[in-house]
Design a protein around this nucleic acid. Structure first.
Lengths: 202, 202
DNA sequence: CCACTAGCGCACCGATCGGTACCGAAGGAG
DNA sequence: CTCCTTCGGTACCGATCGGTGCGCTAGTGG
């Protein structure tokens, strides 16, 4: 069918879907999947339940789209960090980005990928799994980058790419947990600094 | 009044309150505060709602008592680790204990103090704050132990007790997040090992 | 101008939430 | 035994949960 016409037939939507998704992300980020009710979400988005369902599907779909937006927005420092020339610079950019993003003014403290749904009841299990996959994908990206560094001779041949990747992700996640508990950016930067002091941890 | 008589007046309770609290802890641990419904909890505890309310107060009280039990049970490795003679041994016992407890067979993967309520809606905000306080208390205990090590000359005088404490807690929390995502104990042990490789991180 | 399509929002759905009133049952104190 | 206190279970409370049916409205295409 003609699903991609320039001007869609019918009444055009009266709200900015991108802006609404951004608001939804903030609510999920602050309250988690189960802690964010449809009333909370739609009120923040400035639309009614019906409009939300038409535009995004349902609560779970909205959560997944918010996660994608998180990846492309606040968490975009991750793929950027992978482009650094050396493993040390990759690790530094990754952890510094983690500190910055988990203490972003105007955004909830912590990492959406961690606190969005770390534990959940039956209702939120799918959201929980989606975030677990997201975090594991992050470890995979780090591992591949570390392996490349080993192959290029940037890291010693005996280094363990998986171990380094998991370590960096653990420090990043730990920073996120402390940020969620109210830690200041300067305190968390010290954590990132000390984690990098002896890099490459040979 | 006579609140502490040897044999309490009235019908004695027909269930083991300690065992019931243990079961409740497991449910909160696995599902989080908001993800654990009273039906889930009471079914696991083997008692009715009424008995639970009589014995423990309400859901929030039950959660706090479960947290206390967690501290005295699975998380008892923390105060034990603080009694190790050197800072290096303290750090090693702390992180190894973290790996063990977050991957305990028969228990939910991860740390109750992290995933019990990292983010929450209005209903779970008090539980969330209780866990934030609990985690900050953990950092305080570590900081005081690190300061003692500095005072005793075990760590160099220029060391930063707060920084070391936050770093150790970050690695521990990061291990917990990865455990919640399904990581194996052996993988997490490698994370702990690498974090300790260059201790005392001078 | 009309027909069609789709956004919008009210009102409502059944299910489930945490919490409680009530009542019969069970055991100690006298 | 009788009183008294507490336990345990049923049945229920109002509130809120995620999700929808339906009528109205606002645009586009012919």
């Amino acid at each position: 069918m003609d699903t991609k016409r320039k001007t869609p037939i019918g009444r055009p939507r009266a709200f900015d879907a991108d802006a609404a998704l951004e608001r939804a992300l903030l609510v999920f980020w602050a309250n988690g999947y189960e802690g964010a009710s449809l009333d909370d979400l739609t009120e923040a988005m400035g639309i009614t339940r019906t409009s939300m369902y038409r535009a995004f599907g349902n609560k779970e779909d909205l959560f997944r789209k918010a996660l994608q937006r998180y990846s492309e927005g606040p968490a975009a420092y991750v793929p950027r960090a992978m482009e650094e020339p050396t493993a040390r610079e990759v690790a530094t950019a990754f952890l510094n980005g983690s500190v910055r993003t988990t203490t972003l003014p105007g955004c909830p403290a912590g990492c959406f990928g961690v606190q969005g749904s770390l534990a959940a009841g039956e209702a939120g299990r799918r959201a929980q799994q989606a975030l677990a996959v997201w975090r594991n994908d992050g470890i995979t990206v780090l591992r591949e980058r570390m392996q490349r560094a080993i192959d290029e001779g940037d890291l010693p041949a005996g280094a363990d790419a998986d171990q380094l990747a998991r370590y960096l992700m653990a420090v990043s996640n730990g920073i996120a947990v402390q940020a969620a508990g109210g830690a200041e950016r300067a305190e968390l930067q010290l954590v990132a600094d000390i984690a990098l002091r002896h890099w490459p941890l040979g």
